[in-house]
């Protein structure tokens, strides 16, 4: 039941079996989170270091809690508080952390490929918590886990990802993971925010929101970064919202039992209106809980955990 891969760098090169193993294990982990006493001794004596070169309260907290619920010692290093400020290289920082006894390093970094570089230079397991606009595998896994709780099968499932696809590591990881398990993935956004030749990743690419949403089972709404407007990628938030915002009229284009995901934090009234965000079809809070479960599953599996029954 253990994973084929020592690291979790992205979903592009992860096997279908590993994805399924992680999702199944996350299911068991979620039971722990639901308990009154949310702690098991499974990873006692193990050390998880979160190395964050970008601000991200929610992902960092999610990893921290995932480690703590499994009794691992978790330590956080952020770029502003460490020797990074003194000009130390990423590899040297990671080697230092490893020398102090880390079993797993969780890396969030603005440069694509940084997790891979780390994995090639240290011996402990590396989890990519987002590298530039390359991949954010744990986000995609938690999205997939959330989908699996609502939909029977990924095969033939119509998933539409909306927004700034060009700058989205979440979109890329979701595309690799979902297509591996047989989902039909579409992406939609303004032409200036669609990366070239994305259809070669096995997705349909749209600029028209209505076409992209028609008959979808799942919509994953990406956060629009407000600074992209200043960079000239779209004219105004008003126009973005008009063309790509999820509202009640657009909700009607989806399958009746469609669900809405958002990786957060939301810009209410821009990419998603509150009526939709707070509707019964939105599963945004479940995603947050599932994020902890998926990260618990990964920490457990990457440190050699085999059978789910052992967790208790």
């Amino acid at each position: 039941m253990s994973l084929q891969s020592k690291h979790m760098l992205g979903l592009q090169h992860v096997s279908d079996e590993d994805i399924i193993t992680i999702l199944n294990t996350a299911n068991a982990m979620k039971d722990i989170i639901k308990r009154k006493i949310k702690k098991v001794p499974t990873l006692r004596g193990r050390t998880v270091v979160t190395l964050f070169y970008e601000n991200s309260t929610r992902t960092k907290t999610s990893f921290d809690l995932a480690g703590k619920y499994l009794s691992a010692d978790t330590v956080g290093l952020s770029a502003s508080s460490s020797s990074v400020q003194k000009g130390e290289s990423l590899i040297d920082t990671a080697r230092t952390v490893e020398a102090m006894g880390a079993d797993v390093v969780v890396l969030r970094h603005p440069a694509a490929g940084s997790s891979k570089m780390l994995a090639e230079n240290i011996n402990c397991s590396v989890i990519n918590a987002g590298d530039g606009v390359h991949e954010h595998p744990t986000q995609a896994l938690l999205d997939m886990f959330t989908i699996s709780e609502h939909k029977k099968d990924f095969k033939g499932l119509k998933v539409t990802i909306v927004g700034d696809i060009l700058h989205s590591r979440v979109a890329r990881s979701n595309i690799w993971g979902l297509t591996k398990l047989g989902a039909e993935v579409s992406v939609v956004g303004p032409a200036t925010m669609l990366p070239p030749k994305m259809e070669k990743m096995g997705v349909k690419v749209y600029t028209n929101m209505e076409e992209a949403l028609a008959g979808a089972d799942v919509v994953n709404v990406l956060r629009i970064q407000l600074e992209r407007q200043k960079q000239g990628l779209f004219p105004s938030l008003r126009e973005y919202s008009r063309l790509y915002g999820i509202n009640q009229e657009r909700l009607a284009l989806l399958k009746d039992d469609a669900i809405i995901l958002h990786p957060g934090p939301m810009n209410r009234g821009v990419e998603i209106v509150s009526r939709v965000a707070d509707s019964s079809q939105a599963v945004i809070e479940e995603q947050v809980t599932n994020g902890v479960a998926v990260r618990m599953a990964l920490l457990y599996l990457l440190t050699g955990g085999e059978k789910v029954e052992d967790v208790n």
């Binding site: 592009q12 694509a112 390359h134 990366p195 070239p196 030749k197």
Partner: peptide, 13 residues
């Protein structure tokens, strides 16, 4: 180079 590879690798093209 901006193309399929830059899309996959997440590197600015």
């Amino acid at each position: 180079h901006e193309g399929f590879q830059s899309t996959v690798l997440g590197l600015p093209g």
